[in-house]
Amino acid sequence: MVGKHRTSPVVPIEEVPPADASPYRPVVLVVDDESAIADTVTEILSRSGYAAMTAYDANDALETALLTPPELLLTDVVLPGMSGIELAITIKRIFPDCKILLFSGQATTLDLLASAKNEGHQFTLLTKPVHPDELLSRVAASLKHREAHAGAIAD
């Protein structure tokens, strides 16, 4: 009926969505070394019915992803150590179905993106600051295709 990825991600009780929301809560992994951004984005997604998880660097993110496979990775490009793009490529290798959204406030990002493109990865880049409304619609759009696909399987 449902894929493995839908099984019980850990969700704090206060983040449980309102009763009218769909019981299906896509898992989104939010990665940003700026905790103020990571935390607020996670909260925004949680309030909108996603099972959002937070990580502050790439290693942290990989650990979290292995425990709870994400359906969408939303990561800052510039991270300490492994970059957001390297993280995205790694996550894609482990979970090929995982959707990727990158966001960045830096001009140097395009070089990194170009190198990812050379490796055959085409990622969507959001430019900081991203308004929560836009972020939510981008997240929904990224997951839409997947939902339809999952729905087809369920049928």
Partner: peptide, 24 residues
């Protein structure tokens, strides 16, 4: 401009998110 982009955009992103959450 490039360094400003990073220096300003990150705190701006946080503020936008915080104000949004506060409003909601």
């Amino acid at each position: 401009a490039a360094s400003m982009a990073h220096e300003i955009n990150s705190p701006l992103e946080s503020i936008i998110n915080l104000v949004y959450l506060a409003r909601r």
